[in-house]
Design a protein around this nucleic acid. Structure first.
Lengths: 186, 186
DNA sequence: TCGGTATCGATACTTGAGGTAGCGAAATGG
DNA sequence: CCATTTCGCTACCTCAAGTATCGATACCGA
């Protein structure tokens, strides 16, 4: 069995550290041109990198966007002690992240691509949905199907608004969303 | 100013009445292959019609799908006398329609195309969203922004579930959705 | 210092989908 | 019979995802 030796460097030229630059260029390009016109060619150009370099690191546009979103969303800031507060935090956190330039459009775009692409759907579920679903299950102490329902409501609503208006949801409506979903915990 | 004379037939060969056949073929193809692989070529073949005939009637794939959805959804069956009941009816009606074969996938697909296509977004808003928004405003007696919020929640949630699982929402969750949104009327 | 190896940018290519152009044939009304 | 329009058909254009290849380059170990 091969030993996992983190201090061992693989042979050959090491990869240049441009992942963060590519992520930033991806969101910026999507923000400026929209998801469809944000082609891999344009993203590569915006990052100052060859298209082949993109495909060497992420096997498809969908996986690039997914990795970009995982990087952009980061970790949910939950306390684990106050269920109502944690749910409100999660909703407001999601609304804020989806409102960041390019994030909402990227999310909506990759999500819809996934509808017709089972492989991408698995990647999206594993890398993006599962971590937050588990964190919420633990913090809220609710069964999986209930947490999945809440995720459908919150993410679906926020993305639908973003897709219709092109603008993030206003705070008043986020407040309504928070109150509405919080009742499910009582 | 040209007079609108509905009894006057325009000259030339009349269009063959295949709209319904094309709509049926569109939903069936999307149901069988998914939105992305349901190309206009394949839809035309499934309808037994030339691709150019499709483009003679609908200027783009997005407009074809929109017309198809307008035809599939039809009119909301509201009473106009019982607000709570009408809201529940609207939600269950929407859930049932989105669950019909091909409808949910078509809706999700054209919706996401619209995110990056302002012209299509206008078509979708005018032909699909506005009629139901107005009908709900009248039946519920709620202001426009409140009705728009409800539409975001209901449609967003149903489409998100459909996109994630590929299956329509189960009745129990639809019930929860109904109760959750009904509280907004009180 | 010099191979071995893997990444780099660049270019060219394949595949597939949306959409258009132009044709002769067919269907209507006058 | 003639003008007009739609029909199916074929060929085509544009653009985007993804692949293949090549010389150049960066790192490691001997």
């Amino acid at each position: 069995m091969a030993r996992a030796n983190s201090s061992h460097r693989p042979p050959g030229r090491p990869r240049s550290s441009v992942d963060a630059v590519v992520f930033e260029a991806t969101l910026r390009t999507i923000h400026e041109l929209g998801y469809t016109r944000a082609t891999v060619d344009r993203i590569a150009a915006a990052a100052g990198v060859a298209k082949t370099t993109i495909y060497r690191r992420w096997p498809s546009k969908g996986e690039l966007i997914t990795a970009c979103l995982v990087d952009a969303f980061g970790a949910l800031p939950l306390t684990g002690t106050d269920r109502e507060k944690d749910l409100a935090t999660a909703i407001r956190w999601g609304a804020a992240k989806i409102g960041e330039p390019g994030v909402g459009a990227a999310f909506a775009g990759v999500f819809t691509d996934a509808v017709s692409d089972p492989a991408l759907r698995r990647v999206l579920a594993t890398r993006l949905q599962d971590p937050y679903r588990r964190a919420l299950q633990e913090a809220l102490g609710e069964p999986e199907n209930r947490v999945l329902f809440i995720i459908d409501v919150v993410v679906g609503t926020l993305l639908h608004r973003m897709g219709i208006t092109g603008e993030p949801m206003v705070d008043d409506d986020v407040d309504t969303l928070v109150e509405m979903v919080q009742r499910l915990l009582r």
